[in-house]
Write a protein that binds this DNA or RNA. Structure first.
Lengths: 155, 155
DNA sequence: TTTGTTGCAAAACGTTTGCAGCCTC
DNA sequence: GAGGCTGCAAACGTTTTGCAACAAA
């Protein structure tokens, strides 16, 4: 699916969800969704970043951002990650391939990678008493830059 | 390795680490480590629980607990999990088989499971510019109990 | 003796909540 | 017009920090 279509499609998904639950279609909610899906690639963000970045386009309060992120998480239009840092990170899911994360325990940087074997192994798994909607894989370790720093320190 | 040996072994690992970095071997630090490794199976805990539970044996402040948990995380004697809830959860790693987590997005309950295919697929992966030390797999979804509740609500 | 570590309390941080006014339905 | 939603600020729970007293090396 093309980027453009996705951007429209997720709006529909959100609208349908809101209608079903008799929640209201407010401009704030759609502004937030659209901002997130206007970004290409694996756009990682937290609530504060979104708040700051959106000031230019459409002004919304932090409380509303949190509220809306919760709704979007409910319908799996975004995923919430809790890496080791303080703030929760979010990323859009629709139209993106399931991927895993490399998290550097030294500097906290996060990189994505995809691996077919991992994806297949996880998707093959099923449970009688649990309906899986999505998943996250985190590999922790030390990135090249931090490895170098450590080696230099040890000299 | 027997449980008893593990309990002794991790103390050595910790002691070696402390010595290497010229940190001090305080009774508080070893009391915390030993308490964690005195529990059998996949012992999940957060800082507050540990603080409360340890009062009987050896009194330590919350600040020291956080300090020590950080050190133990550094040497991978424990893993830190950040589920969607509030407080970070920890669990011991030494002597336990790598496992994945099922997280219910409704009630927040966490169950463990092991899957050889997933384990193999992840362990087979290697990176030229990243040294993996450990990993976490989370499958999100809805557990049986919550599924029932939702179905009843929809009637 | 030196200096890292502790306990305590206060501060910091991300997130949630209460409330008055607003705007969708 | 009714009631959900917003922005604001205050409150919350977890984690970190500053500091004086303490204790490991």
């Amino acid at each position: 699916m093309k980027e453009e279509n996705i951007r429209e499609n997720v709006k529909e998904v959100f609208a349908t969800y809101l209608k079903k639950h008799q929640y209201r279609k407010t401009p704030e909610r759609f502004a937030i969704l659209d901002y997130i899906y206007s970004k290409e690639g694996h756009f990682h963000f937290d609530a504060e970043m979104l708040f700051a970045a959106m000031q230019d386009n459409y002004r919304v309060s932090l409380a509303t951002i949190y509220n809306t992120l919760d709704l979007l998480e409910d319908i799996n239009l975004i995923v919430k990650h809790k890496f080791s840092g303080q703030a929760a990170h979010y990323e859009k899911t629709f139209g993106s391939i399931a991927h895993s994360h490399l998290v550097c325990t030294q500097c906290g940087k996060v990189k994505e990678f995809t691996d077919k074997k991992i994806r297949t192994a996880i998707q093959a798994k099923s449970f009688s008493s649990f309906d899986v909607t999505h998943y996250s894989v985190y590999l922790y370790g030390v990135c090249k830059a931090c490895r170098k720093k450590i080696e230099e320190q040890e000299k």
